[in-house]
């Protein structure tokens, strides 16, 4: 991978370091200081910070504005963009806008169905899907062209990311689907939270066997569990998340007041274990409403201090 964009994440990966990214979820109000406070907690421990785009279809302060705030703080944002709410006109327009502020990482997603969120009566757009959004960003960046054909000069310098969920069904298409996103132009992948190690390693092996890990940087998704209730909820209620029984048992096996610490320990063990896996190029820590734990996890997992790039 030769780095083509000003993205620090891209440079970090190109230099062969294990990258660390995390995310902040914007508030359900216009209080922008929330983003700054959350980012403040993690900024020295990560290379880039994802900002979720109305995650689980709940209306929040917009990802682009939050990314601009991070950028103004001197951080490196990853703009998450879902195709659920905006058509190709709006998406491409937002990409221009983001690039105009020097935002140079984008994570292309389809997004959860609006039925999960706070406006189940909303129309959905889905003019493009995630794969087509990847194609679109690449077209804009590499060919200086919009989907409609318009040619332009200042190209958005985006390091293009996508999500992968090795745990969704059918399993056998999960690697072909990764291949499809790579073919479309994805350069980095942030995976769904990993709890089922065996399944994840099998997926990674199949990706390796096809040479995909050479072509795309895979960041393993890690979400620390706060308590056994969260483990159960994720196991039973969140589509596409695979929490094995052992994990639920392990979380439930310690007294309530020690479950949070156990969740952190589990996350650290997962990172340690995956560090050894060929094809893992970094970690994406999704500490949902628990950003303050990111420094501890990064430190105890031996990923701190973050390498400096010059």
């Amino acid at each position: 991978m030769n780095n083509t964009t000003p993205s620090r994440l891209e440079k970090m990966l190109a230099a062969g370091h294990l990258a660390v990214t995390s995310e902040v979820g914007p508030p359900r109000s216009c209080d922008g200081s929330v983003i700054e406070q959350k980012a403040e907690l993690i900024k020295d421990y990560v290379d880039a910070v994802n900002v979720t785009d109305n995650q689980t279809s709940v209306t929040r302060l917009c990802s682009l504005a939050a990314c601009i705030r991070l950028k103004l703080m001197g951080l490196e944002p990853v703009l998450q963009m879902v195709t659920r709410d905006r058509n190709r006109i709006a998406l491409q327009s937002d990409i221009f806008g983001a690039a105009s502020f020097g935002i140079c990482n984008i994570l292309c997603l389809t997004g959860d169905h609006q039925h999960f969120g706070d406006h189940p009566n909303a129309v959905n757009v889905f003019d493009l899907d995630s794969t087509q959004l990847i194609q679109t960003v690449r077209l804009m960046r590499d060919e200086g062209r919009l989907l409609g054909g318009h040619q332009f000069e200042h190209r958005p310098q985006m390091f293009i990311g996508a999500a992968a969920n090795p745990f969704a069904d059918p399993f056998e298409i999960r690697v072909p689907r990764l291949a499809k996103k790579v073919a479309a132009g994805a350069q980095f992948i942030q995976t769904q939270c990993i709890y089922n190690m065996d399944k994840f390693k099998l997926w990674l092996k199949l990706a390796r066997d096809r040479g995909l890990t050479e072509r795309v940087a895979i960041l393993a998704g890690i979400t620390p569990m706060k308590n056994v209730g969260m483990a159960r909820y994720m196991k039973n209620r969140v589509p596409g998340i695979d929490v094995p029984d052992e994990i639920v048992k392990r979380m439930g096996g310690v007294p309530k007041e020690k479950q949070a610490a156990e969740g952190i320990r589990l996350a650290i063990e997962q990172i340690q274990e995956l560090k050894e896996e060929e094809g893992i190029r970094g970690f994406h820590l999704m500490a949902i409403e628990w950003e303050e734990k990111v420094p501890e996890i990064v430190e105890r997992a031996g990923l701190f201090p973050r390498p400096q790039l010059n």
Partner: peptide
Amino acid sequence: CSKRMLNGPCGGSEKGKCEVN
């Protein structure tokens, strides 16, 4: 497809059923 994806399935597909329901 609940999200009319042309490059599916999404990450919510589970045991042959859609994430929506």
